Computed example of a mutant assay.
Amino acid sequence: MEHPARTLTARLLASRSLPRTDPQVRRALVDEAFRAELEARLAAVGLQLIDNPYAEHVAVALADDVHEPVFGAGREYAASNIGLTRDQIALLVIIWALIVLPKRERQVNRQKLIDDGQHDMFGQEAPLPHGEEVAGSLSEASLLADFAPVLGHKTYVQGKLLSRLAQLGFIERRGGLIFEGPLLDVLLDYRLLADRIIHGTLGEVLAQAGHPLPDSDGADEGL
């Protein structure tokens, strides 16, 4: 007989991420006992469930206390534990800033409208906004024009950087546009990155390139 928590654990390990709309995932998000069993199964093998209510997917990642035993003390993984190079990480952060930050602003604004009752008299019971209504995309040609000169030439960025990020599930490339992949929002910590990017050097670089970022004030309420 199928055991739902066992099955969901195996599916997460096999797929790395699953959409929040998946029936078993939805159960894990609302059923405390089921979630506790899922988390216990993951913890038994040194993993944890990563769930950001604003993201469209959930994922699994190493538990904090096993980073050292798994990757060793040599710090080879200090920049990335999935083998990303420095320029791939740089491009990943740029794409995250250009897609996720504006998306989060739209999500928060939509949620505020719902909470104010302007869209639905029962708005406070509505799920957080996801999907096409808040999704964004980025022109690949524009990204290359603005950042390929500092990351390498166009062919290198397309063939080595973007292709690797797509392969790992951080982005999706369709029709000359870059879309958020299943792991982009859920694995990069918004609370850690947003303020540093918006008010840091990268925010100034993006603004100079014609990509001004939204203000981070209140953009992570409820997380």
Rank of each mutant, 00 (worst) to 15 (best):
E204G: 11
G136N: 09
V100S: 11
P129D: 05
R164W: 00
A148M: 05
V108F: 01
L168E: 11
V157L: 08
H130T: 14
K160H: 13
S163P: 00
S163H: 05
H153M: 07
H211A: 04
T155F: 06
Q124R: 15
D217W: 06
H199S: 12
Y190I: 02
L183A: 07
S142W: 07
G117V: 11
E180R: 04
G136L: 15
L177Y: 00
G200E: 09
I171T: 11
L213T: 02
Q107W: 02
L165T: 04
Y156W: 03
V108E: 12
I114R: 12
R174A: 10
Q158S: 12
L165H: 02
L168N: 01
G210N: 09
V157T: 12
V157S: 04
L193Q: 10
G152A: 13
A141M: 07
V134E: 01
E132Q: 13
L213I: 01
G136P: 00
N109Y: 00
H199F: 04
E125W: 10
G123K: 09
P127D: 11
L144A: 06
M121K: 11
G200K: 10
A126M: 14
G117E: 03
A141L: 12
I197F: 05
L143R: 06
Q124A: 13
L188M: 12
M121P: 03
K160E: 07
Y156E: 03
I197Y: 09
P102D: 02
A97N: 09
L188Q: 08
V150R: 14
K154C: 00
L151I: 08
D185K: 08
V186K: 03
R104E: 06
F122Q: 13
G203P: 08
L113W: 01
G176W: 09
I95L: 12
T155E: 10
R196V: 06
E172A: 09
P212S: 08
Q111E: 12
R191N: 12
I171N: 02
A209P: 09
L161M: 13
R164Y: 00
G210P: 12
V186F: 03
G181Y: 01
D185H: 14
A135S: 15
L188P: 03
K112E: 14
G131H: 05
W96N: 11
A145N: 10
L188R: 08
Q208Y: 01
P182N: 03
E132A: 14
I95P: 05
L213Y: 08
L151Y: 02
D116K: 15
V93D: 07
I178F: 00
L202W: 07
R104Q: 14
Q158N: 13
E133G: 12
G117W: 07
R174V: 14
L144G: 04
V150P: 00
P127K: 10
V134W: 03
K154P: 00
Y190V: 08
E105G: 01
L162N: 02
I198C: 12
Q111L: 15
A148E: 00
G131F: 07
E172C: 00
L101F: 07
G159I: 13
T201F: 06
P129K: 07
P182H: 01
G181K: 01
I198S: 11
L192V: 14
L206H: 02
